[in-house]
Design a protein around this nucleic acid. Structure first.
Length: 420
RNA sequence: GCCAAGGUGGUGUAGCCUGGUAGCACGGGGGACUGUGGAUCCCUUAGCCCGAGUUCAAAUCUCGGCCCUGGCCCCA
């Protein structure tokens, strides 16, 4: 018998779930504050839905089920299907924090089952959307305890203008973008040789590198893009987006080498990194053409927080221990015959909003105290003959060792006071 | 798909090179102690990833597989 979960899948024991739930709840409560409503869709989708958007690469990673079904590999495809089918009134702002599945080789930060936390806005072309998504994601990261999220910004339209300016053949564009995306990860030489192999002239390569290597303030970069690539529209969008971000009190950094893998982005793309860490924890962009693949064209933009990366960064930072919330009270029947009374006490406490637990293993009092102590309870309510007769409990504070003989209602009042 | 390093009770590990009784710590269960805990002591539980080969004998050597960790390819 093999007790390990399938390849690339993980169990999350209680001690791990504490941190995960906290992160998920933190994020979802912020999403809600910004007015995003939760949309849940099934884990399983029809294969035709999944493959409509997937590139060849992702298509090979779909977990197939029963011939014509498969597990979702992201949260955007189900969203596109839902929106196309129901056509909700714009702007449709939804969030979704859920697992997705991909059949690929697991490695660092990459699993076959992993969680994404997406927000998307359907039905608006305004750069206000981008700014709102960014501030929302940024707020989440701050709330999770990351002090300095760094937001990188680019626009596919600028890259497209550049490609036009360079007279790049359409068939080359995607492989060129992919090579550019490696800037900072691979050496310049390697990227250059890759581009040569793809069939670019050395003049084109030089111009490309001049472009993506350009440094300066956001304003300078945008002017540069207009002048060198004729990217009027793309630069205009970004400068507007930067204005809106200013209103929220933060400033993204323009980086022309930011591409982002997926082919469906049509406008601004962004990525958030944490300055003290390597790799991005969030990314997204505008995908105005995607929805038309599912029927109705509709402008759309989204951003995704990578839960797995965030969790592993939190764990690495020693935040795996959440501020331990002590469990409140454990009801210890002195003998098994008082279990019924313990139940009554426990339920009274629960109805008063106090988490209460009682013995399921018929343990003697010593064992129960030992258990309650090691399980992190702050107090134990001991119940036996005396207590039952007068509708009371002996409430023992486990850290101080102090005991009080109290009516149930008095005990509730005391526990509520301690909890507050 | 490719490359490298690994896989020993539930967890963390020793043993492997040099084949010969699998050891330690923590955890779990019980007791010392039948209405008062965290300590201590004792008892107990439970393991060599799978398969083949070499050998009188394999956790140990060889090969294959699976899984895991990291890197590449790829990818949010």
């Amino acid at each position: 018998m093999d007790y390990t979960p399938p390849k690339g899948m993980r169990d999350f024991p209680p001690e791990k779930m504490a941190l995960r739930s906290w992160a998920v709840q933190t994020i979802s409560s912020i999403y809600k504050k910004y007015g995003y409503a939760e949309l849940q869709t099934p884990a399983i989708e029809k294969l035709e839905t999944l493959t409509r958007k997937a590139g060849d690469e992702i298509e090979g990673q779909i977990f197939r089920i029963e011939g014509d079904l498969g597990l979702r590999f992201d949260l955007t495809v189900p969203l596109a299907r839902y929106v196309s089918g129901t056509q909700p009134a714009p702007p449709f702002k939804r969030f979704c924090i859920a697992p997705v599945w991909r059949r690929e080789e697991p490695q660092k930060g990459r699993f076959r089952e992993f969680w994404q936390a997406d927000i998307d806005i359907i039905g608006s072309s305004s750069m206000k959307c981008e700014a709102e998504l960014l501030v929302c994601a940024r707020t989440c990261l701050l709330a999770l305890g990351f002090s300095s999220p760094k937001i990188l910004l680019n626009n596919r339209k600028i890259l497209n203008s550049l490609a036009q300016e360079l007279k790049l053949d359409d068939s080359l564009v995607s492989s060129v973008f992919r090579a550019l995306d490696k800037k900072g990860k691979a050496s310049e030489e390697k990227i250059k040789s890759e581009l040569e192999k793809a069939g670019l002239t050395s003049a084109q390569i030089a111009k490309l590198f001049q472009f993506i290597g350009k440094t300066g303030s956001n304003e300078e970069l945008l002017k540069f893009a207009q002048k060198e690539a004729g990217a009027e529209e793309g630069a205009g969008e970004l400068s507007q987006l930067l204005e809106y971000c200013k209103g929220y009190g933060f400033t993204p950094l323009i980086d022309f080498s930011l591409v982002r893998g997926l082919g469906y982005y049509t406008g601004p793309v962004f990525e958030i990194t944490l300055s003290d860490e390597i790799g991005s924890v969030s990314g997204g962009g505008r995908y105005d053409n995607l929805l038309s693949a599912y029927g109705k064209p509709n402008p759309a933009v989204g951003i995704s927080l990578g839960i797995e990366r965030i969790i592993s960064l939190l764990e690495g930072k020693g935040k795996s221990q959440l501020p331990a919330k002590a469990k409140v009270v454990y009801i210890a029947p002195v003998k098994e015959e008082f279990y019924i009374y313990a139940q009554v006490v426990a339920d009274s406490l629960r109805q008063a909003g106090i988490a209460a637990e009682t013995d399921l293993l018929n343990r003697n009092l010593r064992k129960q105290l030992e258990f309650a102590s090691s399980a992190g309870y702050s107090s134990v309510a001991i119940v036996g003959q005396k207590e039952k007769e007068s509708g009371a409990v002996t409430l023992r504070n486990l850290s101080s060792g102090k005991e009080q003989f109290l009516k149930i209602s008095e005990a509730i009042a005391l526990l509520q006071k301690e909890a507050a």
